[in-house]
Design a protein around this nucleic acid. Structure first.
Lengths: 356, 356
DNA sequence: CTGAAAGCGCTTACAG
DNA sequence: CTGAAAGCGCTTACAG
């Protein structure tokens, strides 16, 4: 170290944040060597590295992510876009997505990535430019809504070469990579369970068309289970509903007011089922004795409502992990396929008939 | 434009993302002019600006955030750190925090900022270096837990000059800026309500000491309400609990097993109250007739459990907004004070006595 | 109103 | 094993 050269740079920046150049001066090495040492490069002398690391620790030095991201052209950050349903009011996010958020953040942390979160109105232009601006290396799309309204934008993302995965039914012919639950199997299993409980006329609450592919798959499983027992699905027993409690409440009400008779409600989601529970309670119908009720998702609420809700559990932990891993795969330009994750039937009181 | 100079730069980068230099070449201006035009600087000729904007649109150009953040030394990003309670398992985040997340993301968007989300184990070292690495301009801390365990780290953040706000009881002598609910008033109001319903022996479920300042404030309000009616708070009627359903269940059970008699449960949170509801149901006690029950938070579940839960509503919308605004104030080096937000009593069936 | 120059703090060839 | 050089893509004085 040259006497006249003592820490001039460091003296100047001591007030602000320390940079790798400050450390270089203090350690008497060049700035690239500091960079190498901090990144654990093997081509740095062990003692030099130790000295550098110690100084960095003392100065509470942290690598400037903007600089390193700019240089490396990748950010180590993923973006999560939540799409909200009609309710643009406060904070009524589907509880199911909350679990997903938890597992996604955890999976990101596990892979050393940070997570940007953004809520989107379905209608508005997607704020999907996190990748374009190099703030994120890829995007996770999460949220129900009319599939037909989003498919065009998905295609544009594919076209632009944006790295993204979406949570939803993984069906052939969709743009991009999807990770979802095995909705068909879930619908099949829970309907079979209702049949096993002696139910014969099962109302299905939830959209059953291509606008809502996940619900449609659940309905397909539902119908298949009926047919497997020699029953015929009746269109009159299906009523559209989106995944809110109110929507479920209204759908159940509509069927009752229309004079439909049924001994079970197979709801396309827990929130819908909880809305139906309310309708049935208001009408003095006992659950499960008069009408058995089932949901889908196994949100935390499902076990706490009264009667506790039989439902299909989605494996959110695995889902979050897979979403992150598939996305990282895409970013690494590996071949990536969509997947449907196995589900699990969870039987609780809402469908347990006393007498068989 | 010199003939020999036609788009050479552009030709080279047309495969990758467009940069401001590409646009400059195409528009026949210098790169700084492009930068100015895109940022809406008034010192750019209107026609030039128009031409530049059009080219940028065609190329789907987005400003590189890493470059601009590096240059400007600020990221336009805030970080949200969730601290989780004991349950390191999956995704059991307090539903109350979910609402907060919603309102915080919305407030961020409103102020043109992005949000990084990270979950922390309380025990581990805080991953609070988002600001040190220039990934975020400031940090929002969110999560219950033992205050004594975090206060030291909060002090270190203050010392380091980190910009942060935390959600929690805003009490004198705390390090940093806190935004919280008026927990004292909430505890006072809901206890007064129980007294108005004819309750006389009210159990309080939740920690009531300085380890959990928010709960302690609620208890203080509770005790004050009793005294205002000439009653004396009894230590035997208070039982510690953290904000989980299980903890509430156990606390209520412990009081019953200990032989305490009470005609109301004033729980320090909705989750605790819901746990208590379960205990009471298991013991064959009717709510509200035998025991009235109240919570605190007004999570979505509160209105859906049976009987629906009387509780104190925290204004999460305003909370999220204030957290973001206070933090932005700190970042802008404005003087910023903590605040306690007014709360609202929400009366539902769980405390409505038939006969007064 | 516009351009040439400098520089934010890194990482990565390249040369030794 | 280490250093000098270049450059990632911006923004901001500075000069005109």
């Amino acid at each position: 170290m040259m006497p006249g050269d003592l820490f001039p740079r460091h003296m100047m920046t001591i007030k602000g944040k320390a940079t790798s150049l400050d450390i270089a001066h203090m350690a008497g090495v060049s700035q690239p060597t500091v960079s190498r040492a901090l990144r654990g490069s093997p081509m740095v002398n062990a003692e030099t590295r130790k000295r550098i690391l110690e100084i960095a620790r003392q100065l509470n030095y942290k690598v400037d992510k903007n600089a390193s991201s700019l240089r490396c052209q990748q950010s180590g950050t993923l973006a999560l876009l939540f799409f909200e349903d009609p309710t643009p009011d406060d904070s009524l996010i589907n509880p199911f997505f909350h679990s997903m958020l938890g597992s996604i953040t955890r999976a990101c942390a596990l892979h050393g990535h940070d997570l940007l979160v953004s809520f989107q109105q379905l209608s508005s232009d997607w704020h999907a430019d996190f990748e374009d601006s190099n703030k994120a290396d890829g995007i996770i799309l999460l949220g129900y809504g009319d599939y037909h309204e989003s498919v065009e934008r998905l295609e544009r993302l594919v076209e632009q070469g944006t790295h993204f995965v979406r949570w939803g039914a993984a069906l052939p012919g969709q743009p991009g990579v999807s990770v979802g639950s095995d909705n068909f199997q879930g619908g099949f299993d829970i309907t079979t369970h209702l049949l096993d409980q002696g139910c014969r006329r099962i109302a299905f609450l939830g959209h059953a068309d291509s606008h809502y592919p996940e619900f449609a798959e659940r309905y397909r499983g539902h119908a298949e289970a009926l047919r497997a027992r020699g029953l015929t699905p009746e269109a009159a027993l299906q009523h559209d509903a989106i995944t809110t409690e109110d929507s479920g409440h209204n759908a159940c009400l509509a069927l009752l007011d229309r004079g439909e008779r049924f001994d079970a409600v197979c709801a396309a989601s827990d929130l819908i089922a909880i809305g139906a529970l309310r309708t049935l309670r208001e009408r003095g119908l006992r659950v499960p004795d008069d009408v058995a009720v089932t949901g889908f998702d196994d949100i935390p609420l499902a076990g706490s409502v009264s009667p506790a809700l039989t439902t299909v559990q989605q494996d959110t932990k695995q889902a979050g992990q897979l979403l992150v891993e598939k996305l990282l795969g895409l970013i690494a330009r590996e071949p990536v396929e969509g997947i449907n994750i196995p589900v699990k039937l969870v039987v609780r009181e809402s469908s347990r008939r006393q007498a068989l």
